[in-house]
Simulated scan of single mutants.
Amino acid sequence: MTTPANPFSAARYIKEVGRGVNGARALPRDDAKTLFDAMLAGRVSDIELGAILMAYRIKGEAPHELAGMLEAAHEHCQPLPAPPERPVVVIPSYNGARKQPNLVPLLALLLAREGIPVLVHGTRIFNDRVTSMTLFEALGIPLCASTAEASARLRETGGDGPLAVLPVDVLSPGLSQLLERRTVIGLRNSSHTVAKMLQPVGEHSPGEGLRLYSYTHPEYRETLTDYFSHEPANVLLARGTEGEVVADARRNSRIDWLHEGHQQTLVDPTGGSLADVPELPPGNDAGLTAAWIRRVLDGAVPVPAPIATQLEAIRECLKLGTRVTWASPV
């Protein structure tokens, strides 16, 4: 068992969250923040950390626990100054492509070429999936080596536009180390959920960044709506593709804007699957997907209708957001 240099005793927290599905109790928000801070700092022993990760895997995180964890995670992010007077579209990418092509880079590049600052943060590798980081590199777009470089790229006007692609191990080494525990345990843990909720720009306030968030199961949309309705938020919520936030190119999807305790439906489709499904690259091959994305960007292939709808919803959200008086971060 590895003993940290500045150990944190997690026994009393494990006693609360580790009692099983029926007996476990949620920690108060401040306790959840304290515990997650210690986990991010590497102060929790391996055996206690494993117990905590498995306990939450079984119990699940209460909304107020996630809020405390997210607050701790923001404090462990490297500083990333925000562009002046321009909110950043924040795109988390932690799932990658399993069967379908990963079109997160297409969404990011389409936004950036309109002059909209876009930050994509995520993992370099994830099991045998094709990650967005892999695809950006295949597209010839280098990953940022520091948050200072990412901040500079968010101010660029040439090339592919104000686009920064930032690996999570650069953004938050502590969070990256927790994410990597899934390769040891074989299961995702709370850090996966928290990483996708990050707004790492500036002071982490809603006015500085529009976060894209996705769900796979309809019932999870209700959980997320409830969570973001009680926290300072500027979130565009929609059903994504294999856990990624980009719209599924094969079907229409509802898109909601959650901000300052309000919910506004920007897209409410009448149907599901498209009658005319666009011709997509086969499978999830990185080279084929990158080549297809370039063809879309060059105008040789049309933007899939659901992604075009998502782009319009983002534009509308940014426009409406200029009229909102944003609260300070918690």
Rank of each mutant, 00 (worst) to 15 (best):
L297W: 14
H217L: 14
G243D: 01
E219D: 09
E222G: 01
I293H: 08
T289Y: 12
G283M: 03
H262G: 00
R251S: 07
E219Q: 10
E231P: 01
S214D: 13
R295D: 14
P232I: 08
A291F: 03
R221T: 07
R239K: 14
P269Q: 05
G240V: 13
D276I: 11
R294T: 14
L266W: 06
G243S: 04
H217A: 15
R221D: 05
G243K: 05
T225E: 07
G272Q: 07
D248V: 11
V296L: 13
A275N: 14
E242V: 02
D285K: 10
T225R: 15
D256I: 07
D276H: 10
Q264W: 03
G272Y: 10
P281F: 10
G287A: 13
S214C: 15
E222Q: 07
H217M: 09
L236P: 11
E242G: 02
L236C: 08
E222A: 12
D298P: 14
V235L: 05
S273N: 06
G261S: 02
A290D: 04
Y220P: 00
A286R: 14
E244F: 07
E242W: 01
P232G: 09
S214V: 15
G261K: 02
S253P: 02
E222K: 03
D285W: 08
R221W: 10
D285M: 05
G271M: 11
V235Y: 06
D285I: 06
A238W: 09
A291R: 14
A275P: 02
I255D: 02
E231W: 09
G240S: 08
T223S: 10
V246H: 13
E231F: 09
S273Q: 09
D276A: 12
L280A: 03
Y227F: 15
P218S: 02
P269M: 04
R295S: 14
D268M: 06
G287W: 07
Y220M: 09
R251M: 09
A249G: 01
Y220C: 05
W257S: 00
N284C: 04
T223K: 09
T270G: 13
V235H: 04
L237D: 04
S214M: 13
A275F: 07
D285Y: 08
P218N: 01
Q264H: 09
S229E: 02
T270I: 10
L258I: 00
H262R: 13
A249H: 05
S229D: 03
T270D: 06
A247Q: 07
H259A: 01
L237K: 07
N252V: 12
T216Q: 13
Q263T: 05
R239A: 15
T265I: 02
G272R: 11
L266M: 01
D298L: 11
